[in-house]
Design a protein around this nucleic acid. Structure first.
Lengths: 204, 204
DNA sequence: CCAATTACCAACCGTCCGGTCGGTAATTTT
DNA sequence: AAAATTACCGACCGGACGGTTGGTAATTGG
């Protein structure tokens, strides 16, 4: 039992540091030695706990990354009355976190999706599954909004979800090099206008 | 003169193939040898024409990449009467090209921006300069729309430009792994609704 | 026609990286 | 206490990659 605890602790340390460095430098640009040097551990330790670099990364995606996206973007919009307000808030909170992060390098999930596109289908699948969870939850939330009367009945919920995800992926990319505070403000202004539109009775 | 022509031809062949492979596999994942093997050229030929891999890539960005973005997204919206219609068309055309490209790996410029974020400030600057050209042109076009009466006077043109670029960056990322045809349709539907909104008199 | 320049070749170098392996101290099990 | 298992060390290997260099046909200019 004690051994299992130690094992878990070491693995978790490796995953946390791994995610940090992979996020900062990219997967292919981060060597296992980079991670191990940061942790003062040896190659042997790494290959004792994980089968390969790829296996290691997948474990990070399924544990840490999924959790991160879920807690920031999915959980906050589950089962609340006004969907548009709640979605708007979750996005603004995510942008605020990014804005105040001195070491921001973009949307973690989005960056990895771009990096692995066409290079590693297996990892791409794991990443897109997380995106899918968000998408499904957005659609469900929007549909609930129709029932509650917060969202116009003629709105295409899937289309709106796609548009929300697209714009968020993009603004996070822009925020890295641009003025995060200003971009966040302008983005939220337009998003709110867009949300106002799909809450009204006249528009499809 | 003849020599200059041959020089230009070889350099251009290298740049074209280089852009293809960099786009497909990423900058760091593409070796110079990969490019040279494709062209049946030697290392010596490469370092005769270019100082370094980085210098080579920058030349590609400034020549081919700039041209690509300009002809697809900037030129079509310059100096035409109805701005929203023209912007909408340019984006749809770009998405159509991507949709029918079997080897699509996302928005070329967007992918590189993500890949170099925080890794190579110099290259990042060149890439973001291209994005800036697009942004400035979008803003100008939208402002012209105000004068022409196609765009509501109270609209924040910079905000709209940011929102357009964001959503386009994002949808191109989604299209790589998702259903391109469906995503393009849904995206354009929402974009048109959004454009309808900023053309009306009531909204800020 | 000859000298100089151009455009390219191919072997080579130092470094880095993912992964392997033999070993070992500490802990747990029997 | 002996045996077995855990958790980790660090040297090492093969291959790839960016870049260098000495050389050489072909073309060009005087």
């Amino acid at each position: 039992m004690e051994k299992t605890l130690k094992r878990m602790a070491t693995m978790h340390r490796m995953q946390t540091t791994g995610l940090e460095l992979f996020y900062k430098n990219g997967y292919y640009n981060t060597s296992i030695d980079d991670i191990l040097t940061t942790l003062s551990l040896s190659k042997g330790a790494f290959y004792y706990h994980f089968q390969s670099k790829e296996d290691f990364f997948i474990s990070i995606v399924q544990n840490l990354l999924f959790q991160k996206v879920y807690s920031m973007l999915v959980a906050p919009i589950e089962g609340v009355e006004n969907p548009l307000h709640v979605i708007s808030n979750s996005l603004d909170n995510a942008l605020e976190t990014a804005e105040h992060n001195e070491l921001d390098h973009g949307f973690v999930l989005g960056n990895f999706i771009v990096e692995f596109n066409g290079k590693n289908p297996e990892i791409s699948k794991y990443l897109n599954d997380i995106l899918k969870v968000w998408e499904v939850n957005l659609i469900t939330t929007l549909q609930r909004g129709k029932i509650n009367g917060y969202v116009n009945r003629h709105v295409d919920c899937e289309g709106v979800a796609t548009y929300i995800i697209s714009s968020y992926l993009g603004i996070r990319t822009l925020m890295v090099e641009g003025n995060p505070k200003l971009l966040r403000y302008k983005y939220m202004q337009q998003l709110k206008g867009y949300f106002k539109m799909i809450s009204l009775r006249e528009v499809a």
